[in-house]
Structure formats: C-alpha cells, structure tokens
Design a protein around this nucleic acid. Structure first.
Lengths: 200, 200, 200, 200
DNA sequence: CATGAATGAGAATTCATTCAT
DNA sequence: TATGAATGAATTCTCATTCAT
C-alpha cells in the first residue's frame, strides 16, 4: 500500500515527538519536517493536532493488544493464568516498543481537560473490548466463593499493576528478556498465592 | 511595605494560574491581568517566565518549611519522632495551602528538561538545609547499629513518603483535621514499629 | 446518461453551497464531500473554483430561460404582453427553484473584481440572446412613436424590475402561486397603463 | 497622544483595505504592512479580525454623526427641517469621507451571519442614540394629526432614503458641492410637499 | 472518467519579551 | 517602581490545485 507511506511517516514521527516532549511543546511543524512530509498532510489525515494525538493513543493500544492477543492460549481457561499472560504480554509489548511506552507515559501525565476526557474514552473502549475477550469464558468452577468474583478481580488486578509498577522503576535499564523473566517469576509467585486462597 | 503589594499580587496570581494549568498553557498575559498589574512588571521583578515559575517553586517551599519549623520541638532529640513531626507538619501545611499544594503537584509533573533541572536544584537546596537542621543533633545513642544509620534513614523516609502518598489518594476529599488525625495514627504506628526494630 | 451523474452531483452541491455562503467561504472540500465525489473530479470538469462558480451562474440562467421559453406564446406579437410573460415566468422560475434564487442573489452581491467582470459577460450573453428572441418580431405598428422605442423599452423594463423588487421583499414568505397572482395583477395594471400612453 | 499613532495607522489602513475588498479577501497581513506596524499590534488592540472590522464600523458611525451634530441647529424645532438637516449632513459626511463611504457599502453587503448580527447591534445603538437626540423635542403642535406621527415618520424617512439612493447612483462622479446642492433642492421640494400634507 | 494523496503558500492568532517614558 | 505600546517569530490550521494511478 504505497499510498499510506506518508501517513505512516507521520504516525512514526508523532510517536517519537510526543514521546520526547509534552503535547504543548511539540509543534506540528516539528512532526511534519521529521516525517519529511508537507505541512498540509497532517491536517489532511488527522484534522487537527489534538485529534492526531488521540489517534496515536488509540493506535498505541492497538499495537499493544495485537501483541497481547497473538496466539493467546485461550484453551487454558484458568482465570489467574489468563490474567498473568495478559499482564506479561502487555508489559513485554511496552518493553519491545520503547517509543510507544514513553509516549504512553506522557499521555497519561497530560492534564489538559479536553484531552483527558477523550483519552479516557479511548482507554475504556479498549479495556472493555479486550477484557471481555479474555474473561468471558474463564473457569469459574474453581473458585471457592464465585459470588466474590468482583472483589477478587479488583484485588488481583490492582495487586498486579502495583507489582509491575515497582518492577518498572527497578528494572528500567536492564536487558529486556532478563527483566521480564524476573517479573514473570514474581507474578507467578503471586498467582500461586492467589490460587491457594481463592480456589477450592 | 506598600511597595511590594504588586509583586505580591503577581505571586498570588502566579500560584493560582500555575496550579490550575500547565506551565506552557499559562500565558504571562493571564497572570498580569489576574494580578491587575502591567505586563512589564512581571519581567521587571522576575526577568522571564521560567524564572518566575521557579521563584514560585522556591517560595512554596519557604511557605511549607515556615509551617514546619514554627515552634519545632527541638528539645525532643528522638530521631523518629522528629521525622514524624516533620512529615505531619509538611502534610498539614499542604492541606492548609490548597493552591500551593496543587501548584506543587503540577511542578513535579512538569517534564520540561530545563525546568526539571532547575527545580531539582531548588528542591535539593531546601532539603539539605532543613534536614540538616533537624537531623544534625538527633539522639544517635539509641540505635542498635549506629553504623547503619544511612540505610535506616532511607528505608524509613521512603516508607513514610509511601504512607503519605496512599493516604493522600484515599483522603483527598475528607475534612482536613480528621484526615490528618488518621495519618498521624498510622505514622505513629510505624514509628513504634521502627523503634522496636532499630533501637536497642 | 449514467456518466454525468457525478458531474450533476457536483453542480447540485455547488448551487446549494454557494446559495448558503459567500464564494470565499465555500471551500471546494465542502462541495466535493457534499457531492460525495472525489476532490480531483471538480477540477477535472471545471478546471478551477472560479470557473466552476461561473459555470453554475451560466447554468442558472439556462434553467430560468428554459422555464421562460417553454411553450412561449410567440403568436401573440404584442410588445407589452410579451414583456409581461417574460417577467412573470422569470419570477415564477425563481420561485420554483429556491436554491438557484438564493444562489443568484449571492452571485449578484459578490464584489470580487475578476468575478464581476466574467459574471457580466455571461449575463449580457444570455440577455442579448433571449431578448432578441422575444423582441425581434414584436408588433411595432401599434406604437404611437416607434422612433422612441429605445426609451420606452428602458422605462418599461426598469419599472417592471422595480415592481418585482418591491414585491419580492413583501411576499417573501407567501405561498408561491398566491404571491405570483398578486404580482400578475399588478403587472397587468401597469401594462394597461403603458399601452394607454405608448400605443396609438 | 503619541502613543496612539500606530493604533491610528491600523485604523486608517483598515478602512482603506476593507473599502477596497471583501472582508474575507482582506488579510490582516495586508493591513499591518500597509499600516507599517507589527503583526502583533493589530491583535494587541483589537483581539481578532472580526472585532477589528466591527470596531471600524462603529468608528465610521462616530465620524459621520460627529459631522451631523457639529453645531446642529437645535433651535429650529420643525420636524421636517431637522430631518432634512440630518440627511443632508449624513450624505455630505459620506461624500467627504470617500473611504468610509466605500467601507460602509461593503459592510452592508457582507452577508456573514456572525458579522451581520453584530453589525446590526452597532447600527441600532447609534440610530437609537442619535434619533432620540434629534426627535425628542420636535414641534408636534404643527401636525394636523399628531396621532399618526409614527406612520408619518416612517413614510417620510423611507422616501428620503430612497431619494438619496437614486441620487447616489446618478451623481456618483460629480463634484461634491454641486451634487449636494442638487440633492438639497430635491429634498427641500419634498419637505414642502410633506409640510403641505401633514401640517395643519 | 475517477480517485484521493500530496503539496505549500498563506491565513489568523499567540505570546514572551523589550523598551521608552 | 511601574506602565503598556510594540515587536515578530512561532504556531495551528486552511485550501485551491496538482498528479500519479
């Protein structure tokens, strides 16, 4: 598809620019000249700066979830193991795409009202869509108290996100695969712990 | 001091503006018109926008540490209790000065390189100066292993900052004094815990 | 004529757009997207925006004069009655084609030099062509002073255009047929008046 | 007032530019460079293009009414003669300020919604203010039917505006004073006519 | 005949900063 | 100390037009 070459250039340049600097500090001029593209093209494709930014955010989630769902082991219906796979793959994807990871960090730090609102919409849309995919057919028979699934889900995901956060701070400079193995071990440990308490 | 009225107006307007919006989004026009002061005066007093911003940051710490050191119980030479007082007063001060608290949050989220660098300088300067004041004459004889004081200091301050952080998130809407009492109880609990382990 | 469908879409969209907004305010993007047609096609058919605009103007007169000349009673060779028919049909046509009427109003208000010049050319071309048709074989024997035909022509057409103008302002919201009947009565009255003075 | 020199340059350049071309066709660049003034200054004084345009419109009426009211013969309380003075002075003022006259024509032809709305507001404000001044203490005892004053007022002003309009078209190129004398004669004639019919 | 990607000059507007008074 | 007029580079965005396919 030769015709999307320049659009792609814009997207790449956008990710890079918004990963390095704040939204407001990045000028559309910077982006188009980095993308080696005319001034008008950005607006031809994305209408305005804000929409471009949010489109990139949307694309970023697409990239991440593509990695997450590539040959996802749907045959394993164990709740915790699915969750573990999800987290490890998400984290792995961000490790792989450094620019996107940096971009995401900045997006989530942006405190402009209009942008925050739209960003949440996009985020929720992805979350809903993909969590449904993963958790609509998990094995609920294993739980000791299936009626507490809501609370368990929250506690567990929250704990995991915390673990990832701590791990991120600590292993920021490490070799990717090595760091991921460490995270995996830690998560696996917690999975065992959760299983012991929440399963029959 | 009639002659500093306008400078003060600028400072107040500055805190308010930078508490509500990002550095880049706030225009000097916004500030001077909110302060009811001429355009030139801002630059007369503060040279440029960046310096104005950093001056406010410096002033903010002054405000906070003035609260902290007002009748500080220096007669109590216990390490942990001094630390506890420091933290509770700092937090209390921010609770009292909502605008400054919001301002500080935004400053610490700002990721502009030039500003980050300068901001750290100011931060370190205050930290050094005031921590010295508090911890230069603590009672070191109580420690089981005085040679580990460095590690203990880090562990403890880090834990405390974590506790405050969690507390902030949870009690954001609560009544000030009530929320502070809760924090105090929690911190006191940890102080006991630390004393038990690190003191003879 | 399947192959002119898109050209027709463009024309319709053009009339509508230029009826609603000034020439400069209408963008070619507006037109092509309203016409559901590619950007290039507009330029393929009409070369540039200005030419497109003027082509529409030309077409508008074609539409109007088609209505005027549909089964025109050429057997009646009376000068004033032909003129009356011309005016009533012209006005009726504009009442029928609201969009074209609005378009025409805007075109005649446009004061861009280049466009005004071209517009006049088109206008004169139509005028000449059609007035000739109507007035080349009128019954000149009825006039008291056939040598004054020029002045009579001017006086009469000018008076009629004035009558239509006043009528337009007054009956803008009325039912078409009803309003037209009123205009007809008024014009007929003047025709009688003119006949009395200018005929033998 | 040395400090308003450049503001005045902008105003003059604005009148000239908007007198020669449509609102949309005039670029702020054209104006500032004609005024020999920096790009920013226009926006410093007038915020945006639209507001600049409307400010000029307001100023134009000020200029005209300043001419109208300069030593206005308020001692003459005759209704028609006041009206006559008003019209002749208004017309004379526009003859004197050719640029403003051309500007006004264009403003009144502009069909942009937002601008039309604001323009009317300004127009009504001036009208109200000045008509009140002139007609609040006219001699109403002279009228045969003072209860019909509303209708008389409308009929008369409408007739006069029509006369001026025709006159404008005819004497566009004539010497100012000569043309004005012609208009005056014509108006005077009508005043006599009105007096004969509406006065006792 | 039909597309729409691509261009780039030019538009309005913003804003930190300067400087004469 | 205080003003605010003045600057102009930088920014976002528009739009008629071209052209390879």
């Amino acid at each position: 598809m030769k015709e999307y070459r320049l659009k792609n250039n814009l997207i790449k340049a956008g990710f890079k620019a918004f990963a390095q600097q704040e939204y407001k500090k990045v000028s559309t001029n910077d982006i188009v000249s980095a993308a080696n593209v005319s001034k008008g093209l950005l607006f031809h494709y994305f209408n305005n700066k804000e929409n471009f930014y949010l489109t990139l955010y949307d694309l970023a989630w697409n990239v991440i979830y593509r990695d997450v769902f590539e040959a996802f082991p749907f045959d394993n219906r164990d709740f915790f193991e699915r969750l573990q796979t999800l987290i490890l793959r998400k984290t792995g994807s961000l490790q792989k795409h450094k620019t996107i990871a940096a971009f995401m960090k900045r997006v989530h730090m942006n405190s402009d009202k209009a942008i925050t609102k739209q960003r949440l919409k996009i985020y929720n849309h992805h979350n809903q869509k993909h969590y449904k995919k993963i958790f609509e057919d998990y094995d609920s028979t294993a739980f000791r108290h299936p009626e507490h699934i809501e609370e368990i889900f929250k506690t567990v995901t929250w704990s995991f996100s915390r673990i990832v956060h701590e791990w991120e701070k600590q292993y920021v400079d490490y070799d990717n695969t090595e760091a991921l193995r460490i995270l995996e071990t830690e998560i696996r440990q917690y999975v065992e712990f959760f299983k012991k308490h929440f399963y029959k």
